[in-house]
């Protein structure tokens, strides 16, 4: 079974790094700049089901409002990534997620609190309490912590 997963979140939060951690990229970085998107594939087995994840990563600088419609069209799941060290990357998370849910009501969304390696446990917990009622998985693209687990959890949500 094939699933389209999209990554959303502000510039510099670590979307591209997380995908790199999770898969071995086949296409060169050039594609990102030429067409604005990079697609990677990773095969997972979840509950005995083989799932091909086709992970769409958007090119950087744009604010999320400018994301082309086609990026999210037909997506089966989304990863919302923010940077624990930069409040600006999660201050508008509620509205941004709500806006996405308005166009795609049943889309499973998983929130990733990235760059965990840069903060203390207290700082992390403080940030996580700020984003309630959303729950986030705290990841680090640098150390690889919980990266696979996050993708697996989203896959589980999508195959349900």
């Amino acid at each position: 079974m094939n699933k389209k997963v999209i990554l959303i979140g502000h510039f510099g939060v670590g979307k591209t790094s997380l995908v790199k951690r999770f898969v071995h990229s086949q296409f060169s970085e050039e594609y990102i700049t030429t067409i604005g998107v990079k697609i990677d594939k990773k095969t997972l087995t979840v509950d005995g089901v083989i799932v091909n994840l086709l992970i769409w990563d958007i090119a950087g600088e744009n604010s999320q409002q400018k994301v082309p419609k086609s990026y999210r069209l037909g997506a089966h799941g989304a990863l919302y990534v923010f940077d624990i060290t930069r409040p600006a990357t999660y201050e508008n998370m509620h509205q941004e997620i709500k806006a996405l849910q308005e166009v795609m009501p049943d889309l499973p969304i998983l929130v990733m609190a990235n760059k965990k390696d840069l903060v203390s446990t207290e700082e992390l917990n403080e940030t996580l309490s700020k984003i309630q009622p959303y729950n986030a998985i705290a990841t680090s693209a640098k150390t690889g912590e919980l990266v696979n687990e996050a993708f697996e959890e989203l896959t589980q949500k999508m195959t349900k």
């Binding site: 086949q26 594609y31 604005g36 086709l54 419609k69």
Partner: peptide, 21 residues
Amino acid sequence: GLDRDMVAGMLTAIKSFVEDA
């Protein structure tokens, strides 16, 4: 040759991004 699923994804991305642009 190349992974067909990814080729399909890239083609879709190219196509729809050009159309969007």
